[in-house]
Design a protein around this nucleic acid. Structure first.
Lengths: 342, 342
DNA sequence: TTGTAGGCGTTATCAC
DNA sequence: GTGATAACGCCTACAA
């Protein structure tokens, strides 16, 4: 039998409204009354019923964060940061796992469960360009990590092309010319994979170098395992490789593992660079050169935009802003940088 | 203006209750009526209001998972598994971040926000033995990862002592005698740190070897950074080390990084072993020998116990069960094992 | 400053 | 099978 406001009111000899005023820190309550109510609350062990409050208020104080998988370091670090940023704004985060699968991503966008929260921060992976119209939803939504698929949706992007270009230029500067790319799959869409590949190949082209497709190791999922497999395929083609660019850090680390198994030295024989700047890369042996995409800022910005939309009661509309966070190259041992761990 | 059941009922020419019956898949609804209602739902774009449903039902279909930090691989992998297991049972997971700080952990136990969900899976870190009585809560609760602090609370433990013993015996078998321990801090309590230390030192004692405290590197937090720092302190004492036991994998990986920096070969000069079997350890160079504590089983069991308690409406009471999951030693390159990645 | 009435959208009860 | 009606616990008027 849960204790309700009514019980507290009775116990304190006041009305329900007064109890409500006290627990919600409303200004106009006499100190003595407040005191009495707080005492009753403590005695009876009253706890607010959120379902009732949510129903009445029409909002829940929760937001959803939909990511592919929590076990991928980039997303676990991102989730951590989103949770902290949301807490600062008084919101609780419901983490939804889409697996990066299109069907589940569409479901995250429309399911009943979605309605349990006031808004959604969404990091899509499997969505196709033709799904763009699905993003025209009637609730507050902020997209993460990919180029805006639709103009009316708030969107926090990272500088994929610029970051990839920085990696390419860095490797070229180190004298590498036979650079393998691990992770490429879709090179046309607006996804991270495509953008990070484009930025890279364009930089090579600018330097008068054409990327040899035999040095591309494709990986549908971006994990250590698929990175390792892709690296093996490239090496087995026997085309010669003096550097590896992993489209994200776990791919690069998987590739580095294969180089280690094959007795190739990093960076002497093969330089390695990744993308994302996950903590792990600062401690690998050798430590991993990578691109810090501004993840903390992305998380914070996304939460602010979303909370702002929620507060203004402005679900969607034409006010979609695209914010691009600037990336930063982090040079470490795997390309001949110094060995200071992050 | 959201569409309600009332709207659907009006549109379909039926009562609200009938709509409710349809959306909840109640058996006794005539096919034609069902058809009509579903059509109206689709036309009007009706979506269930969860706040109202939760208020009426008295439950939310959500559970809370309280962990120190999502960015620690053990907890991100655990969270992933809990989310999947909960989904199988029809529950959504709210991940709460305690930072491993006692105050925040107590808060997770009692805050109003806690009441937004039907139960709590709690992985404490900063709680003291004297806080045991705080675990006598009036809602479904399952403890994770530590020895039961209180008898009436369901508790899923890992075999910390057995796992640590297995590591010690393995290192001894490999001929190592001057083994450093990285991470020890509290060696008396019932926490993971203490149990993993005890199991280890006892195994040494059984072999007639006394652990030299100068080979202990303390670390309050268990991260790569603190592991590296602890390792440096031990090495700087100049006592000589031919093996390192990290109380968890990130500590061990941080330590391994320092060995790399100092030019010590693993495992030739120094063998390294950890605890937790995070994915990363299968891809480090060299790959990391560790203990798989049965994390997937822990996650699944915890969810089942909790959901069971919720379903039975049995908040606490004397039915606290302690389940201990058996650990398994995973031998890899860092102690001279084969190099097959996980 | 405090009390009262009504509604938030759903589910449960019990007639029909 | 289906339909009124009363909770569920809280909040926002408005009244006192």
């Amino acid at each position: 039998m849960p204790v309700t406001m009514r019980d507290v009111a009775r116990h304190a000899g006041v009305s329900v409204k007064t109890v409500s005023n006290v627990v919600n820190d409303f200004p106009h309550v006499s100190p003595s009354t407040r005191e009495r109510v707080l005492a009753s609350i403590s005695v009876l062990g009253y706890r607010m019923n959120f379902s009732a409050r949510n129903l009445s208020l029409g909002r829940t104080g929760m937001i959803t964060l939909a990511v592919p998988e929590l076990r991928l370091p980039y997303f676990s670090e991102l989730s951590d940061e989103v949770i902290v940023a949301a807490a600062e704004r008084g919101y609780t985060v419901l983490v939804e796992r889409t697996g990066g699968v299109r069907e589940r991503e569409l479901e995250a966008l429309t399911s009943d469960r979605r309605r349990m929260t006031d808004g959604l921060i969404f990091s899509p992976l499997g969505l196709r360009p033709s799904d763009a119209h699905r993003l025209e939803v009637d609730y507050p939504l902020v997209l993460l990590g990919e180029r805006a698929l639709h103009g009316s949706v708030h969107h926090v992007a990272m500088g994929n092309v610029a970051g990839a270009r920085a990696v390419a230029e860095h490797l070229l500067e180190r004298g590498r010319r036979r650079i393998a790319v691990v992770g490429s799959y879709d090179t046309r869409g607006a996804g991270a994979g495509s953008l990070r590949t484009q930025g890279f190949t364009r930089a090579l082209a600018d330097a008068g170098i054409e990327h040899d497709p035999r040095r591309t190791g494709e990986a549908l999922e971006w994990t250590r395992t698929t990175g390792a497999e892709a690296m093996r395929r490239v090496l087995d083609r026997g085309v010669g490789v003096d550097a590896v660019y992993g489209l994200n850090d776990v791919l690069a680390l998987g590739a580095m593992r294969v180089l280690y198994e094959r007795g190739l030295r990093v960076p002497e024989d093969v330089a390695v660079a990744g993308f994302d700047d996950i903590e792990e890369g600062g401690f690998s042996c050798p430590s991993l050169t990578t691109v810090q995409p501004g993840r903390p800022e992305i998380a914070r910005t996304a939460v602010w935009l979303l909370v702002d939309r929620i507060a203004r009661g402005a679900p969607a509309g034409p006010g979609g802003r695209e914010l691009v966070v600037a990336p930063e190259l982090v040079v470490r041992e795997s390309t001949g940088g110094v060995g200071e761990p992050a």
